[in-house]
Design a binder for these strands. Structure first.
Lengths: 342, 342
DNA sequence: GATAAAAATGTAAACGTTTGTATTATCTTT
DNA sequence: AAAGATAATACAAACGTTTACATTTTTATC
């Protein structure tokens, strides 16, 4: 039994002895209603504590003013920052945001997408989880006219806008800095290699070396799959112990790896940055906590969330138009942050 | 113009030459529809790719199966963990979650509450922001039969369930540990003193001392308002420098303060834990990153989110009942985590 | 002051479900 | 095979808006 204990248009209408339609129009600022009536309606509505029922409106208009955002995980300041950006942009355009995390599971990604669809979102912001190889669950939304904007971890095969950060550039900035400060033997600590972002970071690393005419050396490369932290620590420690001669610089593809490397180096009795300089990636909160504070590459996560949301809203609101906008592919620049580790 | 490009009950009904009502009942597992028909409907629905329109259902049933969650900020692993718990519990009961952050602003708290209300949530989970002193925006929801569950930072004057962690206990666990390891002169680093949680931590500190028959010494107490990190650092450093004789233990009311203290102590050339043992509060991700790893008090944030959500859903689903459930006031236990700093 | 034009308001249908009640089909029982 | 009981289905209203279209009121023009 629907509990209609709140004020409806009808209540206002009855109170003022006018029709529901006029009340509705007054409230939505329709020019066809007399200024005096509008005032009266606005006043009465406020006084009676009217709050529009957006479920009803949603049904009628085919719009819910809700956006879904699907991230791979919550325990990562990067994604949290993105969500902040999303909420910020959504709020300023009067959209609400539904949230879910796939926890890096394809299965849950599908479930959540389904949930968003039946929850009636007007559009979806999504960062693919690393297991994802098939995209029908997203294509289904698109077919139903629910636009998608991908961010960070994206697929080129989906008909959607995309917003990413320039990981090649970011890595170049990091490695260039090391090179400019005189380092020549620079190791690379890689994260999950199947992720495109990490591939790009490696690419940036190679490009930087190439530009400085330093040959690429396989021995200086290691990948850690970033499962348990203890596992990563072991991989890194082993890698560093075996490396002869030691590098004079390290570029880690994320801040956590950088910190694990610093921990290893400290235990080996090495000084940072004197003996070995180190740069991380992502500007995670960890980077300022650890000692020495980690130099790193800033990724504009908040801005990414904002821009993606803006694109999405534009696409939603232009969907009545016959001529569809072409898909955009935004790449946001990164920048280097110098701290104590270099 | 509502875009009805998706399959509706009517489409299935027409296809099978039966009525919409029967389709609806078949789908919802009503016993009154013949097994054969139900099968047929289920099959056709799946095949046509039917996805129920929950906006329409929401309008009819007066239920949206959406929960709102309002936190004071995103940049805090504690709240993120709570959101994870909320999503987990919500998902298992088929609820969706709308999210917003007040960013510690009373104004934004009100706006978000309003947004949730007009977004049609069935209930609201809320952690009060530290500015909040008046509660009419919440009372308004309650009056409209939208139940609220408060967590962490709560007001006793609101008619709602509450879930908190036992901060007095947590502080006692921390200080007891220091006392049991032979420390006698224990300093207290306080956070924002207006927050009840912090008052309770101080209380726990005092109770622990009292139980050990150690007099409470005002000189060992400092509060930092936790604005900018640099500001906190200065307050703490000054406090420690002036303190004569130095304490042999420190209990910090949150992990960040603990780490700032450790940084200060290291600069003063002191050894942790040999010279001074230190315990933080909250088990933030920082606590395992810093060296030495910080002993701390674990707060069951995920569980808090889960429990609060469960309470909320129960209240929502029992709201048809004439006899209202009494409000619950859950307090979850904390526990001490021993690491390198003690 | 009659008429046309413009402005303001009203009527009713629609959005896609769910559900109380009415109707029809099927089965029992005699 | 007629009656009643029961099972299965259909009809139609309702949820609170928005909006196309119809109607009434006001204003302007002669």
């Amino acid at each position: 039994m629907p509990s209609s204990n709140s004020v409806r248009l009808e209540d206002i209408a009855r109170q003022l002895r006018i029709s529901v339609a006029t009340v509705s129009r007054a409230l939505s600022g329709d020019a066809r209603v007399k200024a005096a009536t509008r005032e009266l309606v606005l006043q009465t509505a406020a006084q009676m504590g009217y709050v529009p029922n957006s479920v009803a409106r949603g049904l009628r208009k085919g719009r819910t003013y809700m956006l879904g955002v699907l991230i791979p995980k919550y325990d990562d300041a990067f994604f949290v920052e993105i969500v902040k950006g999303v909420e910020h942009a959504a709020r300023s355009r009067q959209y609400k945001v539904l949230i879910a995390s796939s926890e890096q599971s394809y299965q849950r990604e599908r479930e959540s997408t389904q949930m968003f669809q039946q929850g009636g979102v007007d559009g979806l912001l999504v960062c693919l989880c690393k297991e994802t190889r098939r995209y029908q669950h997203f294509e289904q939304l698109i077919k139903r006219n629910i636009p998608i904007v991908q961010f960070d971890c994206v697929s080129k095969t989906l008909a959607s806008d995309r917003v990413t950060t320039d990981d090649v550039l970011g890595a170049r900035q990091a490695v260039d800095y090391l090179l400019n400060s005189g380092r020549r033997r620079i190791a690379y600590l890689g994260g999950p290699a199947q992720l495109e972002g990490y591939q790009n970071r490696l690419r940036g690393y190679r490009e930087a070396l190439q530009a400085a005419q330093i040959p690429y050396d396989e021995q200086l490369i290691v990948h850690s799959d970033h499962g348990a932290r203890a596992g990563d620590m072991e991989v890194i420690a082993n890698f560093l112990k075996k490396l002869q001669p030691l590098p004079d610089g390290i570029f880690a593809s994320n801040d956590l790896l950088a910190i694990l490397a610093m921990k290893s180096l400290k235990r080996m009795g090495l000084k940072i940055p004197e003996d070995i300089a180190i740069v991380g990636y992502g500007n995670s909160p960890f980077s300022t906590i650890y000692e020495p504070a980690l130099s790193t590459v800033f990724q504009p996560a908040f801005e990414m969330g904002e821009q993606a949301t803006q694109l999405l809203i534009e696409r939603i609101e232009s969907s009545d138009n016959e001529s569809p906008l072409p898909f955009q592919d935004l790449t946001l620049p990164t920048y280097f942050i110098q701290r104590e580790s270099t």
